[in-house]
Design a protein around this nucleic acid. Structure first.
Lengths: 342, 342
DNA sequence: ATATAAATCTAAACTTATTTAGAAATTGTT
DNA sequence: AACAATTTCTAAATAAGTTTAGATTTATAT
């Protein structure tokens, strides 16, 4: 292993002091423990010279703090999550914390295994999670009580929790209204099923309420439920079928970026030209490349940077006020914006 | 902190055995240490019943292994990296390792700080990195000698190292040849500068060699160097200028997905319609949404999954054969493919 | 029954830091 | 100079595992 790592004890020996003292100084507690300025300087100088870096495991073992926070997302390759991840990391780095990003692959068991590994064993100090779980049952475990957890994107209705989400209801309401203003009456919405996920149910609610608000009656045939396991094929089958029967569609509105991409693929496959057909295409979630995609996409943009920053800071807050504040849950709901691309 | 965590000692006391024995059994070394089957069963049953999970810090402190591998990328929000990250994680998870993904923001100091924090302190067992460093100097440090490091995407020419990269030269050669076959003579390439990065220099080389191979002389005015700090503006300025002067362009070829996106933005801004102008648009790197972007993009697709899997396994191999194998470096170069989208 | 070998188990050391309780050195007071 | 009060520092305990060296117990051979 190349060269031996410098230990506290090595510095202590060099300076003929105790490792206790060295530890105190290096942790910035020299003044608090009444170590003379001169000694402090000596220690810091020697530590620098010997390139001392503390062993994080020994430190974490003793203190119970790792300065590590984990971010669990369903799929890190989804730009929605990878962008949030970037901002979470940046914010945490500025506060002396490191981020572990893990992708659960929308797999509940894997999510629970990771939480168990990281959180229950206190490998991490806090957890930020876009959960794929549909019930809060798992999070009620005794071991997770009082563990700092921040939900992002999605929260679980059946437990009290701290969360940072976009205003899915409002965003969905607004984009639907925009379509209505453009003259659309028959707006076909595509949702993922099973969708106990809070963000999606609220988007559906926003869609329906917008219709109601403008006296358009909701029709079952205008909400396609796409099976998560088989998005591409399911969109192809159900969309093709719907396009052929039922009332003519004025707009297609996908409730997340996954379905949007699947739709675009299907448009290509079946040779459906939305522009020619006079059909608007809209989607919740915004991806920068949407700017160049044909057909034009009207989209709801979530404040990714803000979600990241708020989630990071909320996690740090929970860590600092461990237990003190356990009774009050912070629920942060951030506004979305519509990108219309006419 | 809710309920007290179960310790080895707790199990030992319950069963009236030593914690040594419990540790051995739990680590699957019961047979090796000659613990009777009956006792082993007893221990495992009790451990399950008491929901024992080992303290990773204590374990790592004693063994020097954390079963953690870090993946450092320049920008996790870049789909190229986030996709690789997904596959690396999946592969490692299947082998009992966990992945820490960190984004260095193309910032050399941050990269070095993270490496120092993770690798030099042995917080991680291995490192997979798309380095933003331009020289291998930092990696020659005594402390990093023999530390398992796998470079991905980019390697440093001035040091011997283990790496997994796409065949950037070949891919660039092929896409340039494809453009030439389509009748292009004046192919404008846009590169990032400063580009000591191996992947980019090889793409430039592939581009130039393709021209040479087809007896087309390379012109300086057909290779724009875009400043990394200011991609968008720089592309706008230099591309606009080039479009107005010099010989007419037959194709625009961006050397990575960042510049491709910047170009698309500029096309929009200045109202340049590549199709109308009869200009092909090509880019190294492929993003799934490219399928729907106008103008059509001819692109070089890198084998993201394969890169991820190979990198993960190479890292694990290095960890296993710590030091044994230090003299032979594995250099894995994977083939790319062209996606032509006519 | 006794010595030897094999099987099974354990006490204590060890990993590297932090923290507690208290010792030693210095300063101040009379 | 004697005693108290500060200031400065340290030995030892501690975190929770793994590993080493060796102790017991059981089985086998004579």
């Amino acid at each position: 292993m190349g060269i031996k790592k410098t230990l506290l004890e090595d510095i202590a020996k060099e300076l003929n002091v105790s490792k206790t003292l060295v530890s105190m100084v290096i942790n910035g507690k020299g003044d608090a423990y009444g170590i003379s300025k001169k000694t402090q300087e000596k220690v810091l100088a020697k530590a620098g010279e010997m390139e001392y870096t503390p062993n994080v495991f020994a430190r974490a073992l003793r203190t119970g703090k790792s300065h590590l926070i984990a971010l669990l997302v369903a799929d890190i390759s989804n730009p929605f999550y990878s962008n949030i991840a970037k901002y979470v990391e940046k914010e945490l780095a500025s506060k002396g914390y490191n981020l572990m990003i893990c992708s659960t692959d929308e797999n509940v068991e894997r999510e629970e295994k990771l939480i168990s590994l990281f959180a229950e064993q206190h490998m991490i100090d806090g957890l930020i999670i876009a959960t794929t779980n549909t019930s809060g049952e798992y999070f009620k475990k005794e071991r997770l009580r009082n563990f700092p957890i921040v939900f992002i994107d999605r929260y679980l209705p059946d437990i009290e929790s701290n969360y940072v989400v976009a205003n899915n209801y409002q965003g969905s309401l607004e984009i639907t209204e925009l379509l209505i203003q453009k003259g659309c009456k028959n707006i076909l919405a595509l949702n993922i099923t099973p969708s106990h996920i809070s963000s999606l149910t609220e988007r559906v609610k926003g869609y329906k309420d917008a219709l109601k608000k403008h006296d358009i009656s909701f029709k079952d045939e205008n909400l396609l439920e796409i099976s998560f396991d088989n998005i591409q094929n399911d969109v192809k089958e159900k969309l093709t079928k719907r396009l052929k029967q039922g009332q003519k569609i004025d707009a297609i509105y996908t409730l997340n970026n996954h379905i949007a991409t699947a739709c675009l693929n299907v448009f290509n496959e079946i040779g459906f030209d939305a522009k020619k057909e006079g059909v608007y295409f809209a989607s919740f979630d915004n991806i920068s490349l949407f700017d160049f995609v044909k057909p034009n996409i009207i989209s709801v943009s979530q404040p990714l940077e803000q979600i990241g920053i708020e989630a990071a800071n909320l996690a740090l807050h929970l860590i600092d006020s461990k237990g003190m504040d356990a009774s009050t849950f912070k629920k942060i709901v951030l506004p979305t914006s519509i990108i219309s691309r006419d």
